[in-house]
Nucleic acid binder design. Structure first.
Length: 217
DNA sequence: CCATTAAGATACT
DNA sequence: AGTATCTTAATGG
């Protein structure tokens, strides 16, 4: 048990040590629950009761909203050092999650029980700032997602998507199918294939089965 | 081998 | 840009 706590502290120190004061780190280590997720697992699903909020230690989580027709809207990705601040509000007013969080890469996180987080808002300045910044970041990203949907055409959205994927996977070789891209951008496979083919002809990417390599976008 | 499935091609809306 | 349909090719048993 003591060993686990030390490991937790080590992982926290990787990133959060610059963000949180020492006493807060101590409390996180004390009450936080470490959990890891494999690619494709759900961190949170629509309708889940939120009892904890996750601090992402590493990996990437795709946050999407699904409407009645089963169409998915990709909102943003959570990465190292971030949290789902939306779930934060869900916790406080004990409502259910509006979003689904799908793990894109192997992800490690610490779950903080809700009974602590409100108290920490008062107790720790760094926690307060972290939550507010997190909210701000999510909002900016969502505005960008809306702008992209409303004002840019599909080939620009594909480029943007691929750049984002490279960043998240930390790899120019992406293991992804045309269908998956189509789902994320609410388009159809044929259309994505067409546009990807164009990018390949322009020597911007290299296509393969179940994979693609980004050369220069 | 064959079954499954990703992705290319073509034609039409 | 999207749908329907057919063809081709990769993959894994």
């Amino acid at each position: 048990m003591e060993n686990n706590k030390n490991q937790l502290r080590e992982k926290l120190n990787d990133y959060f040590t610059n963000i949180f004061e020492k006493s807060l780190i101590d409390e996180i280590v004390d009450v936080g629950k470490f959990k890891s997720f494999k690619k494709g697992e759900l961190l949170v699903d629509i309708g889940d009761e939120m009892t904890h909020i996750p601090l992402i230690l590493n990996g990437a989580v795709k946050i999407i909203r699904e409407n009645k027709n089963k169409d998915e809207i990709l909102l943003y990705y959570l990465e190292r050092g971030q949290t789902c601040s939306i779930s934060f509000v869900n916790c406080i007013n004990q409502s259910k999650s509006m979003f689904r969080g799908v793990v894109e890469n192997y992800t490690e996180c610490i779950f903080i029980p809700i009974n602590r987080i409100e108290n920490w808002l008062i107790k720790y300045k760094t926690w307060r700032e972290y939550i507010i910044d997190s909210y701000h970041d999510r909002l900016i990203e969502m505005v960008e997602a809306i702008r992209s949907l409303a004002f840019t055409n599909l080939d620009e959205r594909i480029k943007k998507y691929l750049i984002e994927q490279v960043k998240i996977k930390q790899n120019k070789n992406l293991n992804i199918t045309h269908q998956e891209i189509a789902d994320d951008l609410n388009s159809s496979r044929v259309v994505i294939s067409r546009l990807l083919k164009k990018l390949e002809i322009d020597k911007k990417i290299k296509l393969g089965r179940n994979k693609l390599k980004v050369i220069k976008l």
